[in-house]
Computed example of a mutant assay.
Amino acid sequence: MTLRSVDLRKEPVEAVLNRVERSLGVCLDQETVVRKRRSLGARTDRDTWVRIERRGLDRIGVQGGDGTASAEALLGIAKPAWLAGVAWRDETEAVMWRADETELLPGPPVGSAVVAEGPQLSDEWWAALNASLDALAAQHTNRIATPDTETLTQELVTGTVHSAFPGIDTAVTEWRPAHADFNWANITAPEFCVFDWEDWGMAPCGLDAANLWGASLAVPALADRVRSERREDLESRDGKLMTLFVAAKILGPYADPEDPRLVPARKAAEQLLRELQAS
């Protein structure tokens, strides 16, 4: 059965919100409801936040759909605490709905996923980012990252990179835990905190740093700062491969001709290809 393509920004969601309220015993503040393509969020009457996701059963895989809850076991990372959750199967479609209640964020997101202007971030903020990513990479999990709900495998890495750069050796040598959706919309400021953990799991070393670099390319100084702060990740062979993986998503078959990141991504990719082919 082909799963119907759904954009929750356009779908009626009152029944879903009502079910979440009954299941978690909360009242959602309708004025705070945030709609995204495959998720909803709202503040509750007990000063917490509830995130609701719609995910096809074919996108759950062996690890289930409990990323936010399972991330509660991660230590040393600035993230909102998980408090409660509920999941159910849709009555008419091959879809799982899941709602997770967490602490409120300490501040607003830095920006949209991809920023066009450089945010004002303190040295303390960057230190907190580094501490959290280092702590995450040092932990252990059986989960596999699912960026964009796709299970991150060697085959996915190869297919994505070769869609823009055919022939390059894409063999990954080191896998570590990663957030897997590490962009400016999922990070807060002025106090650093990273949220939306539904896709976290094992990934090639450097994925999170490469994602943030790619989300910063429209602001060259910001992209350079990301590279400088996460140099150890991004200068490893796997880090270079993940940077190429991110560049391939920008430059590949679905490239947006209006994307301001095209030129810097292409320039970076050319340099990376030379370095990887020489190694």
Rank of each mutant, 00 (worst) to 15 (best):
R4S: 06
S5I: 12
D7W: 03
D7M: 06
R9D: 10
L17K: 04
L17Q: 02
R19K: 12
V20A: 00
G25M: 12
V34K: 15
R38W: 10
G41K: 15
T48M: 05
G56C: 02
G61R: 15
G61T: 14
D66Y: 15
G67P: 09
T68D: 15
A81W: 13
W82T: 08
D90C: 11
E93R: 15
A99I: 06
G107H: 10
A113H: 04
W126R: 06
A131M: 03
L133S: 07
A135Y: 02
T151E: 11
L156E: 13
T160E: 06
V161T: 03
V161R: 02
A164C: 05
F165D: 00
P166E: 02
G167L: 04
I168L: 05
D169G: 01
D169S: 01
T170C: 04
N183A: 05
W184G: 08
N186Y: 08
I187V: 09
P190A: 05
E191M: 13
C193F: 08
E198W: 11
G201L: 10
C205T: 05
L207R: 08
L212K: 07
V219H: 05
L222V: 11
R227N: 05
E229W: 02
D233Q: 12
M242R: 01
A247R: 02
P253L: 00
Y254D: 12
P260W: 07
A265P: 02
A269W: 02
E270M: 04
E270F: 01
